[in-house]
Design a protein around this nucleic acid. Structure first.
Lengths: 339, 339
DNA sequence: GATTGCTTTGAAAACGTTTTTATAGTATGA
DNA sequence: TCATACTATAAAAACGTTTTCAAAGCAATC
């Protein structure tokens, strides 16, 4: 039972409350005998310290919050698993809150339920919200936007680089007509990746065709629909290659292409983003830009805890990406478009 | 700042602490003017109640723990998302702890960090651990084993039924040689599903062939390897159909079959388990036994909170399953085994 | 032998709430 | 008019800790 309090232990051991507290917290001030005796009594009574009492006093919760609009998909579960492990290692808990209601997130952030927050919420939190958080000295690390001030930072992927490298790779394979399947236009990674893509095209003096900007919402089905309807609307502009905003989009894209009789990579190359766990096992195995998701989880937890414990300033860290060439892309070859 | 306390509001409003508390908590005892005034002051000062203070009083943490060995894969993220949403709806937080170290789990359970726990940990928690938890009146709900006592219950899938129905379905399609790809032999769902499978075979007076028990560890790659090596070792016993312990195994199985030149479902039928979110979009779309994963998440949270708040006894609830027929299975037709 | 200083322990305050109890003030009734 | 009852608010206790400060005991020093 959680009913045994420090008072009970004190009474039973015949000492004061403060002595019990000191004994339990290894404050090096008691005689070994006293300490031993107290600990024995505590053990015998099955004493378990009440967390709320502790926390009320210290003003800390030893809990980090992960506030997000979703945990679905490989990116998130890899991230959550990594963050949870790191939190546990460092003596913190990880509280996961999935909601699309921004106000719920803000209330939880400001309510002091957690010592710090990790936020992924697709940019619906605006500058005003951030200002409020800053004023309240909330410790926060963002995964999907760049924020930097006294108490807030970001750990993000070098998505611009990724988009640029992947596009350049496709260009070098001989592809000319390259389409980009974005997430949502407000999503940081999606935009950065597209900008890298545009930069590579411009560098190669290729035209930028707005028709080649598809919207797949970073989901398998969204991408499938986008690609399918594109092929339907622009049968004359079938791309040589697709750069998908993430691997799920790549998978949806490939499914759409297959359904229209195209073979990947023979007819059309497809490159994804993330290198999610199933990417190597997909058929064909995905060529993709690897994001160090697990590493992001570790870094974000450490950065947050440093800000909490050592009052460190927030920083922005960008994780390097790496192109992983597998089976979904190849040198451009003459394609016979199916009818 | 999180520094504004109820005292500050009281001073600023020129009333007592208790009046502020009553105003904030809608205790119907104040004059409307007083209440309004207090609320305005609180608003103006950006007062946010300190959670630890509240909780200390109530003796609760308003936090549920989800302790698991992994959150990877569609089953888990669907579950976590569902549990998180339900927790939020009911005013609780969800603390996720991913670890394979049983002792870490036990310490967290007994440490009073949370009001109740949801446990999925592949049966490494033994009867003794459960007895300890019972003695300490820990509120717990298990997802992967049957436990029932004063403070513990289970919400599980009707896996035996599922295995039985799926197997019967395959038999009715005309398949004779049906293999089962299990998870690990200690995993509850895996075992139950297999027992249902065996029961259906026996009912049909089919022989039970131990060679047809494959082990795929509930993972895509594990299943791929198991199927591939089976085909290699028993080229004379190629099954008519595979019943996979979960959808990931089914996907790995199909990939292995394709790699050996078999086409699904033309040559071999494959049935999975779970109906994960990508099952309808896979190629071919998976025939599978649907588990109500999101519903499991909702039920487990509610059951736990009922035990916490209303001192209800633990119960065991089994969720019905449903066979969803899609494209990965069909009536047996003469197959020409590839060379 | 008194003073100082150190060691060990205890008493009490503090954290921010909610809840219980007390105290004015006001209305009601005979 | 005075007791009674009720209302609105305030004061104080309580939740379970940690921490600060005081006190007591004792050894060492002069």
């Amino acid at each position: 039972m959680g009913k045994v309090t420090i008072k009970d232990v004190a009474r039973e051991a015949g000492v004061s409350i403060s002595t019990v507290s000191n004994a339990l917290n290894n404050v090096d001030v008691l005689t070994p005998e006293t300490k031993k005796h107290v600990l024995e009594v505590a053990e015998r009574l099955n004493y378990v310290p009440n967390l709320n009492g502790k926390l009320l006093k210290s003003g800390k919760t030893k809990l980090l919050g992960f506030f997000t609009t979703s945990v679905a998909g490989p990116y998130f579960y890899t991230l959550v698993e990594s963050m949870s492990r790191e939190c546990d290692r460092l003596g913190y808990g990880l509280s996961v809150l999935v909601t699309k209601d921004k106000q719920v997130i803000m209330n939880n952030i400001l309510g002091g339920r957690v010592d710090g927050v990790i936020i992924f919420e697709e940019l619906k939190i605006n500058d005003h919200d951030i200002a409020v958080m800053a004023k309240n000295k909330i410790k926060a690390v963002f995964l999907d936007r760049v924020v930097q001030n006294e108490t807030m930072g970001s750990i993000i992927f070098n998505s611009f680089e990724g988009g640029y490298e992947a596009t350049k790779y496709l260009i070098n394979l001989g592809h000319r007509k390259i389409a980009y399947i974005s997430g949502v236009d407000t999503m940081f990674d999606s935009v950065e990746r597209r900008e890298g893509y545009v930069a590579a095209l411009q560098e190669a003096n290729f035209p930028i065709d707005q028709d080649y900007f598809l919207q797949g919402y970073f989901e398998e089905e969204g991408s499938y629909n986008a690609v399918k309807s594109f092929l339907h609307m622009h049968p004359d502009k079938v791309p040589d290659a697709f750069l998908a905003g993430n691997d799920l989009s790549a998978i949806g894209c490939i499914r759409a292409l297959k359904s229209q009789g195209y073979e990947v990579p023979r007819d059309i190359s497809v490159v994804g983003f993330d290198d999610i766990d199933i990417a190597p096992y997909f058929s064909p195995p995905l060529t993709t830009v690897r994001n160090q998701i697990a590493r992001q989880g570790i870094l974000v937890v450490n950065h947050l805890i440093r800000m909490i414990q050592k009052k460190e300033q927030g920083t922005v860290e960008r994780l390097d990406v790496e192109l992983v060439v597998r089976g979904s892309s190849q040198v451009k070859s003459g394609r016979h478009d199916p009818v």
